[in-house]
């Protein structure tokens, strides 16, 4: 209960902060976009701001400074060392301090709020799983205890219900990847729900990388029968393959649509959850009425619980679908009569 109050309270502070910094009129759209987008500083609460380092490579030249330099004492954006931040992006600025729109050669490697949040999650992942690995070594062969007994059923579930069930006998070499994406996504989903947390797994760049990894692993572990199903799909009239090559084209597109759906699903689910919760809080400020408060909070609390579930569910779905794609890539088709309806082959 205490945690919940802190959670709700923090949301209110952030919202209030966003509202006040807008200079009077409250714009829920801006507030929400600001919250779910990446940032060069990390607002934990009103007044508690961590300015993160800006790292730029400008035509091969390495530039690094704190993002606080972009703000003057009145919290207004100012150019610094020939760069200017505008609409959450850093641009090369001209002498007048205006961004140069078509400037190329500037690469932004800044440790943004998302990157910093990811580092926090990585530290957490390392702490949790290294200590669990340690406990396995310490009480080898004995019953799990503490954190070990919390995570062991999850690890076994991923192994038995996700990997073994969908990949088959070759599941073992995919286990590290499946475990890593599952816990990476889950931990980051949960961190995103924390007050002041970043929206890492609701960022398309992050889900793009994760989906690309799944795509690459699928493609590189594809066996003869997998490629055979793509370029010479059994049970399809020959003219659809060699005359008008519709099937190979469709199957080839399918290789990319599967991870694309992974990318969009995770991104959309997590971002949508954040938007809904923030919208519910925004109602209070839109109606400018305390009476809306309890209703808003009730709905937002419900949504928060739902999001806790979604955090786990999306991690599970991403892992499960990845396992299914791997399973389709390594599956051995013994019979030509099996028209691709084999388990885990096509989805």
């Amino acid at each position: 209960m205490k945690k919940l109050f802190i959670l709700l309270f923090s949301f209110l502070t952030i919202t209030a902060n966003a509202a006040s910094s807008e200079g009077g009129e409250f714009k829920p759209g801006d507030m929400i976009t600001h919250h779910i987008a990446d940032d060069y500083s990390w607002h934990f609460a009103d007044g508690a701001v961590l300015y993160l380092p800006v790292i730029l490579i400008d035509n091969g030249q390495f530039v690094s400074f704190s993002s606080s330099n972009f703000y003057n004492e009145n919290h207004e954006l100012v150019p610094y060392r020939g760069y200017k931040m505008e609409h959450g992006h850093i641009y090369k600025a001209n002498e007048a301090g205006e961004p140069i729109a078509d400037y190329s050669g500037l690469y932004d490697f800044s440790i943004t709020k998302n990157v910093a949040s990811m580092f926090v999650s990585v530290a957490l992942l390392f702490f949790v799983f290294f200590s669990i690995a340690g406990s396995y070594k310490k009480n080898a062969g004995k019953a799990p205890r503490g954190m070990q007994s919390f995570f062991e059923p999850i690890i076994i579930f991923i192994r038995d219900e996700i990997a073994k069930a969908n990949i088959g006998p070759k599941y073992e070499r995919y286990m590290p990847y499946l475990l890593t994406i599952f816990f990476f996504i889950w931990f980051n989903n949960l961190l995103g729900l924390m007050p002041g947390g970043a929206n890492l797994t609701g960022n398309i760049a992050v889900t793009l990388v994760l989906a690309t990894m799944t795509l690459l692993i699928t493609v590189f572990s594809g066996n003869k029968s997998y490629w055979g199903h793509i370029f010479n799909t059994p049970g399809v009239p020959w003219w659809l393959k060699w005359g008008i090559p519709i099937m190979p084209v469709v199957e080839l597109i399918g290789i990319f649509t599967k991870p694309f759906s992974l990318m969009v699903r995770l991104f959309a689910n997590i971002t949508a959850g954040h938007i809904i919760i923030l919208s519910l809080f925004s109602l209070i400020f839109i109606f400018q009425s305390v009476a809306v408060g309890p209703l808003s909070v009730a709905f937002a609390t419900f949504m928060n619980f739902l999001e806790l579930f979604v955090a786990l569910l999306q991690a599970y779905i991403f892992t499960l679908l990845s396992a299914m794609y791997f399973g389709g890539a390594v599956e051995e088709h013994d019979h030509v009569s099996d028209l691709g309806h084999g388990e885990g082959a096509h989805h």
Partner: peptide
């Protein structure tokens, strides 16, 4: 739209971090 445009820097950090974590 900004929301669905992958940010280059984040892709880089995510890739590097994820590979190290993996």
């Amino acid at each position: 739209m900004d929301l669905v445009t992958p940010n280059f820097g984040l892709i880089f950090w995510q890739l590097v971090t994820f590979l190290i974590v993996l």
